[in-house]
Design a protein around this nucleic acid. Structure first.
Lengths: 195, 195
DNA sequence: GTCTATACACTGATAGAC
DNA sequence: GTCTATCAGTGTATAGAC
């Protein structure tokens, strides 16, 4: 089998790398961190990912974004023209995945990788995360179900809010994150009612 | 004068360091980056900041947070019990400052510094950024001007939204950020009206 | 597939000249 | 106040044994 074959061990590498990169960002995660989490040596990573750290980062972000795009689109499409239901479905999907902080990615991670890779990832992130939510707002706005608003701004704000909640460290006694998102989405939907 | 005297040159160091740390985060900024922006050599930084990189980071975050606390509290106190006015004043203040991404700080920067420093900064960030906004929601909620909501959640969501807008790269033709915040705040306030 | 060993660049930090 | 010089530690990456 060629290098890029998806073996069992390779999947573990990608999964751990995605988790660590998502949590701490590109610069703050070293290949030794990833290897340590896998209980192997740093050099061994190059068997699975010959391209090195940057290629690994690009691959896991692209994988994660493809997953998010599919997850968000199906979650939103599963419900009808009900904004609250769609946003809650989207939030539930996002909470089920490793937190992808696209704000930090644009501010911190992209400048740390090669411009070519950054440019590719930027559009992938936009298409996968922002677009599905933005199109939801556009659709409901055009149908008159919500007031006319800048759909891109609303989508970005929604994703930032959900990500903020997702990033809260789980503390004993803290309210469940799904309850927090429900409450926020309720406020948003009431604020977007026509008239 | 002792080492900690605030000389002219020292202020420049702190200002540049705050800007770079705020933009890219602790791990992604090197002392050589800061020195280069000041047109001096990396070793020269140690004259102004004998404590090194971590001490520099702690100091600029504490300075920035003290500024934010004062700025947010006065901005909010300047207007009365009008939620929209208070949030717009808070947003205008935040937009006038270098973006302080407290989500990234907690996720990425804090794990990269010593636990002792991280612990100190955590409470400073909470007291300076979240608390002033949270207390605004609590006050208006208790007065019956808005529906009862989790004030901490609303405050975190508000700050995350504003930060997301603040972090958008300035592109030609893009709508002004203040207009975006106005629109978002309007949605929030309508969604929080009693009944 | 994973290891050891190692090359090489970068980073934070110190010492001392000017 | 800033410089040069230098060091130890760390990070990515490669070569080759097993």
């Amino acid at each position: 089998m060629p290098d890029t074959t998806s073996s069992e061990a390779r999947e573990r590498v990608l999964a751990i790398a995605e988790k660590l990169f998502a949590e701490r960002g590109y610069a703050a995660v070293t290949l030794r961190d990833i290897a340590e989490a896998l209980n192997i040596r740093q050099a061994s990573l190059y068997y699975h990912v010959p391209g090195g750290k940057e290629a690994l980062f690009v691959e896991v972000v692209e994988r994660g974004m493809a997953r998010h795009r599919h997850g968000l689109e199906t979650a939103i499409a599963a419900v009808g023209d009900d904004l609250a239901a769609a946003l809650n479905a989207a939030a539930d999907w996002l909470l089920s995945q490793p937190p992808m902080d696209f704000g930090r990615m644009q501010q911190s991670d992209m400048p740390a990788i090669s411009p070519a890779a950054a440019h590719r990832l930027e559009s992938v992130v936009y298409d996968s995360l922002l677009l599905p939510v933005q199109q939801l707002f556009e659709r409901l706005s055009a149908a008159g179900h919500i007031r006319p608003v800048r759909a891109g701004v609303m989508a970005g704000a929604f994703l930032a809010m959900i990500n903020a909640i997702h990033s809260i460290p789980d503390r004993y006694g803290a309210p469940p994150k799904r309850e927090m998102t429900r409450e926020l989405i309720e406020v948003l939907c009431l604020g977007l009612l026509p008239r």
